[in-house]
């Protein structure tokens, strides 16, 4: 039993190291405290709401978020805007609907059930407007990058002067955390580019944290439910395992053999 546990845990640990080590080259990303990490991790509601503001006022100019609907903004475990606020947010966007009875397409304000309106009609249009680079869809962006939230958080703050001896093409910027250090996106955030309603100072660091939190939620909208259920499931399993262990001991005590 002891040997078994020892070996089994070595295996599981090895498993972790292998998967960790192949996920990315080791880069020292900027660190911050993420409220959504850990056994009981939850999103910071204020940060999510501010993050949505940064997304919609800054990122959404180029980046789509096509798998989200406006209703998601009011759902439990998300930014949890009130129903009125969520409806108002949706109504501030125009969507094309139709065809109507005359066979015409028409514009109408978005409803809760509509998907987030995309800044460009299609990938080609997005590329044409951005010097050939496609601003990736942000729905699952956090999960689609090796460093996850730390990577996004660092990238947003990683814009620096081009080091001497390095020349960049027109429309390319230097970013310390970008793969190859060359990025098409110009520094998106600058101090006070948005004005937070709750009085939080809109520093680049603060906005990076808020928008990254928002992106994490966008990629994992059920993260809070997952953490809550996970804790319950594991506590349940541990109790059941303990009970079964003692039952097993009792049953096996009938034969003189070691369990």
């Amino acid at each position: 039993m002891k040997n078994f546990i020892k070996l089994f845990s070595i295996l599981v640990l090895f498993f972790f190291t292998i998967t960790q080590s192949n996920s990315a080259e080791k880069i020292d990303y900027l660190k911050t405290d993420w409220s959504f990490k850990g056994l009981f991790g939850k999103f910071d509601r204020g940060s999510l709401q501010r993050g949505y503001q940064v997304y919609t006022e800054v990122c959404a100019a180029c980046h789509s978020m096509k798998y989200l609907s406006y209703r998601n903004l009011g759902e439990k475990g998300g930014p949890e805007f009130s129903e009125a606020e969520t409806k108002a947010i949706a109504a501030s966007f125009e969507v094309t609907d139709g065809p109507n009875a005359d066979g015409e397409m028409f514009e109408r304000p978005a409803k809760l059930s509509d998907k987030f309106v995309m800044p460009y009609e299609n990938v080609k249009a997005a590329q044409a407007a951005n010097g050939g680079a496609y601003p990736p869809d942000m729905s699952v962006l956090v999960k689609a990058r090796g460093g996850g939230v730390d990577y996004i958080y660092s990238l947003l703050q990683g814009y620096e002067e081009v080091p001497s001896g390095m020349t960049l093409d027109e429309g390319v910027h230097y970013n310390k955390y970008m793969y190859g250090n060359k990025i098409r996106m110009s520094a998106p955030l600058s101090e006070d580019i948005v004005e937070y309603g709750d009085g939080t100072k809109a520093t680049v660091e603060q906005m990076s944290k808020d928008v990254t939190t928002f992106l994490m939620w966008a990629a994992e909208p059920h993260l809070e439910a997952r953490h809550q259920m996970g804790f319950k499931a594991i506590v349940y399993l541990i109790i059941l395992t303990t009970l079964v262990y003692f039952s097993m001991k009792k049953i096996w005590s009938r034969v003189e053999s070691e369990v």
Binding site: V12, T19, S23, G230, T241, V244, M248
Partner: peptide, 24 residues
């Protein structure tokens, strides 16, 4: 019962992956 006990231990490891690092 012995298989059941081992299975439960295994499920605890399984649950950690599913609930706490599902994409790792």
């Amino acid at each position: 019962i012995k298989d059941g006990f081992a299975l439960l231990m295994f499920m605890i490891v399984f649950a950690f992956f599913v609930f706490y690092s599902p994409n790792i």
